[in-house]
Nucleic acid binder design. Structure first.
Length: 549
RNA sequence: GUCUCCGUAGUUCAAUGGAUAGAACAGGGGACUUCUAAGCCUCUAAUAUAGGUUCGAUUCCUAUCGGAGACACCA
């Protein structure tokens, strides 16, 4: 990468100037008049060597070895070193982008590492709601970014197919409710009716023990139907899980693990088995309840080991909403004592909550927006909008869905994943400006232009090359952005960048005629490179790139 | 009450301790007999408060105020 090269040159110049042990940092100045890259090494060094920052900068500048990459170096502001790269660097990059194609931007940061990413985690018998959509969008993006960084990624989904929520749903099913309404019905009964509560607790045991034929039948049917619904949604969203783990499969082993470590790791307390987290600055959590059943904590403990047996990961990433952040710390503390090597490889990536303006969503009360209904509603909105804007709509249903899902995913991925999203259908999902469809539209536009150019080839002839502007400069930064997104597990760096790139290209497009004319070949090559980069970036985010829209 | 995360234009979001805090939406104004107007150009508008560290703070530290989450048998 260019940044590595540049850093080496700076380090060398610093040494030549008599400054050693410098950590060189590079950044892109906000304004291109301050160069393509800037470094604050002189500012950092100034105090250490007792000289004025500007003098230090000048010394580094004069000791810079001449090379073909750099056009000029300026000392500016309080003591920044601003680097201007040769035009040739940017125009040559277009060739590289077109040659590398779909692989442009990939790196080898974590090459050879086996990574398991767990995300989405919906519960059978409960609705797949927009919260799951958030986890899925983030987890899928992280998986794809990890792949682009060289990792071998396996996607995992962990699903709660046993536990009180299932017992409540079964109570509802038994009372004649359907899968959509059963859970809320059972929850209500549990809270309001003592007899129902006792019955549900009884159901819960029967589910674990599988000793009641009627319950088994209801359970098996409901579970299968739920999983089938989830598959349909994953297909729409573009996720294919390599492994499905179920609480029913890990519960037994998890319970054993806890029981084997009573008195060493865990303690008995009021009939339950708990981990006293206070010694780690955390809080106490129950691992086996007083009914003798493993809680989510014990199951998760078993899951960690079973995951590793299934796929010997170097890193295990668990993507969930941040409401379980504290709980996960307790889990990791316990895991650290039982399987220290696994705890060290496990990383919890919490994301914000998706909340409604009225507050937190609650599947207990049935106050949820399902993923399915959101996608349909957004499709409707887009269809209406397109109909108003254009006389005829050539948008087929498949494209409409790609754009709708693109709008939804973008709205989730555009911000720092740790922050909550207050979800308001009217405001949260945008089709213009800073949005998924804006990027998809820009991509389609590049393809449309290329299709128009039937007689011209993509030429980057030295004689016809234009002076590189913002578009060319942004294009060269893409690999840095992928790297940064991977390093910080922060997909929003990509969305921000892609929107900047699309915006620069749209401005270029509005003021330059691309097809035909003197520089036609070059401009087409530029359009192709923008299209390729948008496509690669959108792919990492999990957004489709329709050719027309 | 204890712990964790968060407070940036009217709204939704950006900004590895750096230069004039950047977009989008909303609102005002505008261009186009041109390759996709889901587009382009332009104007108005923000770092919760008070201290501290630093050459330099939206960013780090402390306190206050405000919001969200967790705090034993749900997940």
């Amino acid at each position: 990468m260019i940044t590595v090269e540049l850093k080496q040159l700076i380090t060398k110049a610093c040494e030549q100037a008599g400054f050693s042990d410098v950590e060189v940092k590079l950044e892109h100045p906000d304004d291109l008049v301050n160069g393509d890259y800037a470094s604050n090494v002189a500012l950092m060094l100034a105090k250490q060597v007792g000289q004025a920052p500007k003098d230090v900068a000048e010394k580094i500048k004069t000791n810079f070895a001449s090379n073909s990459l750099i056009k000029k170096i300026e000392v500016a502001g309080p003591g920044f070193l601003n680097f201007f790269l040769n035009d040739r660097f940017f125009t040559d990059r277009l060739k590289i982008i077109l040659a590398q194609g779909d692989s442009y931007g990939q790196n080898k940061d974590v090459e050879g590492y086996k990574v398991m990413v767990e995300y989405t985690d919906p519960n059978p018998f409960k609705a797949f709601h927009i919260g799951h959509l958030m986890s899925n969008s983030i987890g899928e993006a992280i998986s794809r970014i990890a792949e682009a960084s060289g990792a071998e990624v396996k996607r995992a989904c962990y699903q709660g197919d046993v536990g009180m929520h299932v017992a409540k749903a079964l109570y509802g099913l038994k009372a004649g409710q359907n899968l959509m309404t059963a859970y809320a019905f059972g929850s209500k009964a549990y809270d309001e009716n003592e007899t129902a509560k006792a019955q549900i607790i009884e159901f819960n045991k029967k589910i674990y023990n599988r000793n009641d034929e009627e319950i088994n039948k209801l359970y098996d049917g409901g579970r299968a139907e739920s999983l089938e619904q989830f598959e349909t949604i994953y297909q729409k969203l573009g996720t294919k899980f390599d492994f499905n783990f179920f609480e029913s499969e890990v519960a037994g082993f998890g319970k054993e693990l806890v029981e084997q470590n009573i008195d060493t790791v865990f303690t008995n307390s009021d009939g339950a088995v708990v981990y006293a987290g206070e010694k780690d600055g955390l809080h106490t959590r129950v691992f086996i309840n007083s009914e003798g059943l493993p809680t989510y904590e014990a199951k998760e403990l078993g899951l960690a080991k079973i995951k590793h047996d299934t796929y010997p990961y170097d890193y295990s990433i668990v993507v969930t909403a941040n409401e379980i952040t504290e709980y996960f710390k307790v889990l990791l503390a316990a895991l650290k004592q039982i399987y220290p090597e696994l705890a060290g490889k496990t990383r919890h990536v919490p994301h914000g909550m998706l909340r409604l303006p009225t507050g937190k969503m609650s599947s207990r009360t049935g106050e949820v927006i399902t993923a399915e209904s959101l996608i349909e509603e957004v499709k409707q909105k887009i269809a209406t909008k397109v109909k108003e804007a254009k006389k005829e709509s050539n948008l087929d249903d498949a494209t409409l869905e790609q754009v709708a899902i693109g709008a939804i995913k973008y709205s989730i991925l555009k911000q720092d994943i740790t922050k909550d999203i207050i979800f308001d259908l009217e405001k949260s999902i945008s089709f213009e400006g800073n949005s998924g469809p804006y990027l998809q539209y820009t991509y389609a536009r590049t393809q449309s232009v290329l299709a128009k150019a039937t007689t011209e080839g993509l030429m980057i002839d030295a004689a016809k090359v234009e002076v590189p502007g913002l578009v060319e400069k942004l294009l060269t930064r893409y690999p840095e952005i992928v790297y940064k997104a991977g390093e910080n597990l922060a997909p929003h760096h990509l969305t921000t960048y892609l929107t900047e790139l699309a915006s620069a290209f749209n401005a270029y497009y509005a003021s330059h005629k691309i097809v035909g004319g003197e520089a036609g070949g070059y401009r087409l090559a530029l359009s192709a490179a923008v299209g390729q980069t948008l496509k690669n970036g959108l792919k990492l985010l999990g957004l489709a790139t329709p050719e027309r829209m």
